[in-house]
C-alpha cells in the first residue's frame, strides 16, 4: 500500500500536473493558431471592454436571462464551480501537502467549511445527474462524454469525503482520492472539461459581437 501511495503522490502526481499544464498550453496554442488562420472575420471584433462586460454579467447569479429561467441550475452550477475550485485549494490537508513537499504555506479554510463545500460539489453533481436522467431536454442530448466528465468530477470529492470521515478502508480511499484527482487534472485539456480553458474565449467573443456589432447585451 505504501508503494502505491508513493506512486500516486510522486510520479503520477507529476504526470497529472504535467499533462494538465502542458496539455492546456498545447490546446490553447493550437486553438489560437487555428483561430488566427480561419476565424479572422470573428477575431476582428474581439474587444476587451465588451469581453469583460459579458464575463462579469454572466458571473452574477440570476443576472442573465438563462439563469433567471433556470433557478435550480443557477444555484447548483454556481455553488458547484465555486466549491470545486476553492475547496481543494484551501483545504487544510492539501495545504499541509504543499508544505510537506515544497515548503509552501498559505492560509487555509476551516475544515468545517471545506467539508460542507465538498458536500455541495457532490450534491450538485447529483443534481446534474438527475437532470440528465429526468429532464427530457437534457436527456435527449446527453452522451457518453457528458456522463464521463460528471464521474470524473465527482470522484475526487466523493472519495475525499469518504477518506475524511474514514468510511471504508482509509488507505484505499486516500489512494483512490489522489488518483481520481489526478485523472481529473489530466482530463481537463482532452475532454469536455476543456470548457475550463475555452469558455472564457467563447464568452468573450459573444460579448464582443453583441457589444460591438449588435450593440445589445448578451445576457
Amino acid at each position: 500500500m505504501h508503494e502505491i501511495y508513493n506512486l500516486v503522490t510522486g510520479p503520477l502526481a507529476w504526470l497529472a500536473w504535467g499533462i494538465f499544464i502542458v496539455g492546456s498550453i498545447y490546446r490553447l496554442a493550437i486553438m489560437y493558431i487555428l483561430a488566427k488562420k480561419k476565424d479572422a472575420p470573428s477575431l476582428a471584433y474581439m474587444s476587451w471592454g465588451f469581453s469583460l462586460r459579458s464575463i462579469i454579467n454572466w458571473l452574477i447569479p440570476f443576472n442573465a436571462l438563462g439563469w433567471r429561467r433556470n433557478p435550480l441550475m443557477t444555484v447548483a452550477t454556481f455553488a458547484f464551480h465555486i466549491c470545486l475550485v476553492v475547496a481543494p485549494i484551501f483545504l487544510l490537508a492539501h495545504v499541509a501537502l504543499w508544505d510537506q513537499f515544497f515548503g509552501i504555506t498559505y492560509p487555509v479554510l476551516d475544515e468545517k467549511v471545506t467539508d460542507i463545500m465538498t458536500m455541495i460539489v457532490v450534491a450538485a453533481c447529483l443534481i446534474f445527474a438527475a437532470r440528465r436522467i429526468f429532464q427530457k431536454e437534457v436527456r435527449y442530448v446527453s452522451g457518453f462524454q457528458d456522463w464521463l466528465i460528471l464521474v470524473i468530477a465527482v470522484l475526487p470529492f466523493a472519495t475525499g469525503l469518504l477518506a475524511y470521515y474514514q468510511l471504508g478502508n482509509y488507505q484505499v480511499m486516500i489512494v483512490l482520492h489522489i488518483l481520481s484527482g489526478e485523472i481529473m487534472l489530466a482530463a481537463i485539456p482532452f475532454t469536455r472539461l476543456s470548457h475550463m480553458l475555452f469558455s472564457v474565449f467563447t464568452r468573450s467573443y459573444m460579448g464582443s459581437e453583441f457589444g460591438g456589432v449588435r450593440r445589445v447585451k448578451d445576457w
Binding site: A35, K38, D39, M73, D146
Partner: peptide, 18 residues
C-alpha cells in the same frame, strides 16, 4: 470555412439544455 469557433463550440457545449 470553419475554424476555432466551431471547434470550440462543439467541444465545450456541456449539453446542459439551458
Amino acid at each position: 470555412e470553419t475554424g476555432a469557433r466551431l471547434a470550440a463550440y462543439s467541444e465545450i457545449c456541456m449539453r446542459c439544455g439551458l
